[in-house]
């Protein structure tokens, strides 16, 4: 099994599944093109994350990350929650396989977007549209990838940045 026991535990029994009615902030990231999509809704009370829920379309890692990041955010102040990093989510899960690390990025990104949305609304700024395109998509539309591990590569990269193997031959889509 490629996943840690903690990941599997969160995957089997994910915490905080759902969508808060009339949320104070909504964060949506990802796109079905890359296989993952995540929506986090938050309720803020006295500058603290009073409640947080998620909805996720994605792999086992994406679901476990959603469960973990919402657990981590609950009860924290807005500033503290904003400081939750992708790395710390992955660490709390006992690590993620190399090719699934981008899922942890998704989790923290969705949370940060939800908080940003809350802050924007508080300041009276226009909230983001739900179907706004996100950067995550571009990472998977690269033209070159590593022949050994499928990692996306820069056109002229001599080595794969993930597995370290020399990539003199580039495979194009």
């Amino acid at each position: 099994m490629q996943y840690s026991e903690t990941v599997m535990e969160h995957f089997r029994n994910p915490h905080n599944v759902g969508r808060i009615e009339n949320p104070d902030g909504v964060g949506e990231v990802g796109n079905p093109v890359c296989g993952d999509m995540m929506t986090i809704t938050i309720k803020v009370k006295d500058n603290k994350i009073d409640d947080v829920k998620f909805e996720t379309f994605g792999c086992g890692a994406a679901i476990a990350v959603s469960s973990m990041v919402t657990d981590m955010a609950k009860g924290k102040t807005v500033e503290e929650a904003m400081n939750i990093t992708n790395k710390s989510v992955a660490e709390h899960l006992g690590g993620l396989p190399q090719n699934k690390l981008h899922c942890s990025n998704l989790g923290a990104d969705a949370l940060h977007r939800a908080i940003q949305d809350y802050l924007d609304r508080k300041e009276g700024r226009v909230r983001r549209r739900e179907d706004e395109p996100v950067e995550h998509v571009t990472a998977h539309e690269g033209h070159c990838y590593c022949p050994y591990c499928d990692m996306d590569l820069e056109e002229e990269a001599p080595y794969c940045i993930r597995c370290g193997k020399p990539t003199l031959i580039h495979y194009h889509d």
Binding site: F11, R12, G35, D36, F57, G58, C59, G60
Partner: peptide
């Protein structure tokens, strides 16, 4: 539709 394949495979494997 509306769900991702790997998560289904993992859940079935469980």
């Amino acid at each position: 539709h509306y769900v991702e394949g790997e998560s289904m495979v993992l859940m079935l494997d469980e």
